[in-house]
Write a protein that binds this DNA or RNA. Structure first.
Length: 271
DNA sequence: ATTCTTGTTGCATC
DNA sequence: AGATGCAACAAGAA
């Protein structure tokens, strides 16, 4: 489920734990979310430590603890973060719980377990955090960087390219479709066919969609306005809110893709 | 019963 | 070497 803005929304679900100290760590050791992690070291390091704060970047979250330890969380496809009190009924897929000194429980729930946790004892930021590329809303995300990346992935559909986290951190299936719909590019257009004007438009629209998502969804999980593709893309039979024509849904780049044939035509990218 | 899923990775192939 | 495409991971919903 979670892309850029939803990730930040879930990060803040754990805010009630900030300033509190970890009393116990409960980890379902059979759950895949802990794969590759030394869970004993993680539990040892976090118990007795105060949660200082958190940050989100791309689809990743980092929770920082006193003493310099970092807990990383990636929500995968179906993960979510919850905060409950001591009376909270555990659910079937509570795989990781931080029990805090005031009785609050910070819970990572993930039925499909494509998500994962990571750990770094510190000091300093972990390698898996440092290597997250510049955010789309940052100064480091330039037209030149986009242009070079599109050239390198020349034979791949633009839809598949926008899903590559190494260059478009935080973009997921619905955001990629939203960008292409707003900018008027066909999802099957080849990345290498994008001309200078088209690259600039793509860059501008990426920033616009990220900013809109952070403003609307990250704030309180409001439903996006009906003027976005978002509300019309999920089921067969939807109509384009701009062209008022039927939307099309088909697999592109291995993912279900929704676009408006009336306003996303092949060839527009060659400008 | 069958098919679908808002993500990532590892592997085979080009 | 680098680019490309696809299966696999797992569980719930429609």
């Amino acid at each position: 489920m979670p892309e850029l803005a939803e990730v930040d929304y879930f990060r803040r679900r754990w805010n009630p734990g900030v300033g509190r100290t970890v009393r116990a760590v409960h980890l379902n050791r059979r759950a895949r979310i802990g794969r590759g992690v030394d869970v004993e070291a993680l539990a040892d390091a976090l118990v007795g430590r105060k949660l200082l704060g958190s940050q989100a970047a791309a689809k990743q979250m980092a929770f920082r603890f006193a003493g310099g330890a970092w807990l990383g969380v990636h929500l995968g496809m179906s993960g979510r973060l919850e905060c409950g009190d001591a009376e909270r009924e555990p659910t079937k897929h509570d795989h990781f719980v931080l029990e805090m000194t005031d009785g609050k429980r910070l819970v990572f729930v993930d039925p499909r377990q494509f998500g994962r946790i990571q750990f770094w004892p510190g000091p300093g930021a972990p390698p898996w955090w440092e290597k997250i590329p510049p955010a789309i809303l940052s100064d480091g995300f330039t037209v030149g960087v986009v242009s070079a990346f599109l050239r390198r992935r020349a034979r791949t559909s633009i839809k598949a390219v926008l899903l590559m986290q190494e260059r478009f951190p935080g973009i997921g299936n619905w955001m990629a479709d939203e960008v292409l719909w707003r900018a008027g590019f066909h999802p099957q257009a080849k990345a290498g066919d994008f001309g200078p004007a088209a690259v600039r438009k793509l860059h501008r629209t990426l920033r616009e969609v990220c900013a809109d998502a952070m403003r609307v969804i990250a704030k309180d999980w409001s439903d996006p306005p009906a003027t976005w593709l978002f509300n019309h893309r999920w089921a067969d039979g939807g109509r384009c809110p701009r062209a008022k024509q039927p939307l099309r849904r088909e697999e592109v780049g291995g993912r279900t893709t929704c676009w408006s044939p009336a306003r996303q035509r092949l060839g527009a990218e060659r400008r």
